[in-house]
């Protein structure tokens, strides 16, 4: 992960026309090159709206909203890009519903379609297609009909199709909502690989245990406001975090208890976080 920000927002405020309250309220944050930022929040917190601003969908496609503040993508003000397609050349957006993003009849054609539209030369197209199929574990699906895929397979195909366009930033709106645990793990591992290759990833998801495991940092949105930004451990152990799992809760309570002098706590906070996220416990890491 680099220290150069790929995405920067300052004072980002947005209101949909006719809405009583703002969808986003004075949002400021940075996402660094090659970083995975996980965004958490209840329904209506503004997560998808934020992704739409970062992808240029607002205001270029959705015209009933306008935002104030600065949004900087890869060192350029987002307004300087001028059009949605110009932004899309750098920023890939995967929408929530895979059904509306599969616009071809066969998986192979689906992966190739975006590259064909952009005039990618055939050898390079084939190379990217093979790489995406391998990364997202969809090689056996390449000759299948898109309408006959399961929900999870569709989700993997749409993420792979966006990856094929080689964007430098990928925004994923609940990419694992229809996936089983194995499918989720496969997508998250692929996303981790992308980040390790220098692609910046922003994921909105409700599966906090997966985000905590794979994201470098988490951001909590609440009613359009940023409540917290930090490492998964910082977010999970915050006193006011609604995402603190019970196991960490108990560990924190034990931590605060005035136990008998010399008594060792049965479970430390680090161990609790590790148990919950499935990450190796701190002592295992040290060994």
């Amino acid at each position: 992960m680099s220290t150069a920000p790929a995405i920067t927002t300052r004072g980002l405020t947005l209101r949909y026309s006719g809405a009583e309250r703002r969808a986003l309220e004075d949002i400021s944050f940075d996402v660094f090159t090659g970083e995975i930022l996980g965004i958490l929040g209840a329904t209506g917190a503004g997560k998808s709206t934020l992704l739409q601003v970062l992808a240029g969908v607002i205001p270029h496609h959705e015209h009933d909203a306008a935002f104030r503040g600065d949004v900087n993508i890869l060192g350029r003000d987002i307004d300087d890009y001028g059009s949605l397609t110009a932004i899309a050349a750098e920023v890939g957006l995967v929408l929530q519903d895979p059904e509306v993003q599969l616009v071809n009849t066969v998986v192979r054609e689906e992966l190739a379609w975006g590259m064909e539209n952009r005039g990618v030369p055939i050898p390079e197209m084939q190379q990217r297609l093979d790489r995406a199929a391998e990364l997202f574990d969809i090689t056996p699906l390449l000759d299948r009909f898109t309408h006959a895929l399961s929900g999870g397979e569709k989700q993997r195909v749409v993420v792979a199709a966006v990856y094929c366009l080689s964007p430098r930033i990928i925004l994923l709106d609940e990419p694992t909502s229809e996936l089983d645990p194995a499918g989720t793990e496969s997508v998250m591992k692929a996303v981790r690989t992308l980040a390790d290759e220098g692609v910046t990833v922003v994921i909105v998801d409700h599966k906090i245990e997966e985000l905590a495991l794979y994201a470098d940092r988490l951001m909590v949105l609440d009613s359009g406001n940023v409540r917290a930004v930090g490492t998964p451990r910082e977010i999970l152990t915050r006193g006011d975090s609604p995402y603190r799992p019970q196991v960490v809760d108990v560990a924190l309570e034990l931590d605060m208890m005035d136990l008998w002098p010399g008594t060792k706590l049965p479970l430390g906070v680090d161990e609790a976080v590790a148990i919950w996220t499935g990450a190796p416990a701190p002592e295992e890491v040290q060994q």
Binding site: V57, T85, D97, Q101, V103, G114, N117, G119, L129
Partner: peptide, 25 residues
């Protein structure tokens, strides 16, 4: 309702871009 999202996803993937298209098949 679906048509708006479909047109967005197509636009994001370069449908209707000016310039030469290539074709895998």
């Amino acid at each position: 309702k679906r048509s708006g999202d479909i047109s967005l996803s197509m636009e994001l993937r370069g449908y209707g871009l000016k310039g030469p298209r290539t074709c895998l098949r």
